[in-house]
Design a protein around this nucleic acid. Structure first.
Lengths: 207, 207
DNA sequence: TAAAATTTTTACCAATTGGTAAAGTGACGA
DNA sequence: TCGTCACTTTACCAATTGGTAAAAATTTTA
């Protein structure tokens, strides 16, 4: 018997855990936690179910592993927001990054959204301990920009909500978006639209 | 044996179908279609599972009934958008209505969002046959406003996406919002923020 | 009030679920 | 070549799932 949670993983372990997590992302993001089955994940990974359970102790462990790996990359762009940079350009850069993430990692976005829809039962402590402090810090930075007259008067918290919602919409509601847009290149139009939107919102009024 | 799908329903039928749909909305919106169980719905409605299946033939039928009832009210505000009204005020009114719906009917919003996350398998024909024509009509109306110089140059389709995403965010990501905002009255601030956002975006530039 | 129709309960069931035990396979170093 | 360790398969299992059959209770109707 081996304890997979300790020591450096073998080549096989690295490969199979990767296969499992990739398949699990597909299944969980499509069917939700409750709708996902180990059989579907195992089959997606090309492994037998007991073999899958050799690498992860339970369904929940796979899900939680997936979520916590996601959260690292998810927070990153907000961390990068630089209080010493140009306010409008910093925020537009953040919008651009978030939109690119939504377009390139839609499954990740949907996994996160699905967890939120369920009331974030497995993310409660993450929200309070990690996201909240970061959120407050960035809200304050934005408020400082406003106070310095370098940014239009906006509610910092709701500005961030607006950035999150408008960008993630292209992943989470992708099914709707693709039906309604048909032809026109969604990615480029979305980029142009959001740039315009936030530029108009954020540009301080000269006086 | 009775055919519940025909003739006018009895008082008991009306009451119990209502109880079931109310409970089902709770369960489906929280756990998703796959995660929801008939036992949970039955218990929520205060009925036994076989009794519940006397009123609906299957789990899927409950879900579909719920969805299609929702869609009627969901589309309504967009239908109301009046091409003969004042452009900015019409659109701001639409935003206000959508935000109120999200705040007052969060479970409905989450049910819809959950279906979207799964790729809208049960809404494919609704999206194409009902939503798409309406969407196109309204996009054209917005474009006409722009061409008449009564509205800033915006991408109509993406404007609608932005309205949908920013408003529904307060329902779909409510778990996150409530953790991050703590005290401050979210509803009122959201209203003020979105009014400001869309006013700045939509107000045509004088020239 | 008796019969007819509707509603509810009891007792099931086959399929699927997450998960386990243990035997088997394969690679690698002593 | 043998034993050890990591990995995989086979054969399960108890619990839960969506759903059914039919009897029992209740309500409605004639």
């Amino acid at each position: 018997m081996t304890d997979l949670s300790e020591k450096k993983p073998s080549r096989i372990q690295t490969r199979n855990r990767r296969l499992i997590l990739d398949a699990a992302l597909d299944v969980f993001s499509r069917d939700g936690y409750g709708g996902a089955t180990l059989d579907a994940i195992a089959s997606g990974a090309g492994l037998s179910k007991p073999n899958l359970l050799y690498y992860f102790d339970s369904k929940k462990e796979i899900y939680v592993t997936l979520l916590s790996q996601l959260l690292e990359t998810w927070l990153d762009p907000l961390v990068e927001l630089d209080p010493d940079g140009d306010p409008v350009e910093e925020l537009l850069g953040y919008v651009r990054l978030k939109l690119d993430m939504a377009l390139e990692l839609p499954a990740e976005s949907r996994l996160f959204a699905g967890e939120m829809l369920q009331g974030a039962p497995r993310l409660a402590e993450y929200l309070k301990d990690d996201l909240k402090p970061l959120f407050d810090t960035k809200c304050k930075a934005i408020q400082d920009w406003i106070d310095a007259g370098r940014l239009a008067h906006v509610d910092p918290a709701h500005l961030i909500f607006t950035i999150w919602s408008t960008t993630q919409h292209y992943a989470d509601f992708g099914a709707q978006v693709s039906v309604l847009l048909e032809n026109s290149d969604p990615a480029q139009r979305a980029h142009k639209h959001l740039e315009q939107l936030f530029r108009r919102l954020l540009q301080p009024v000269n006086h």
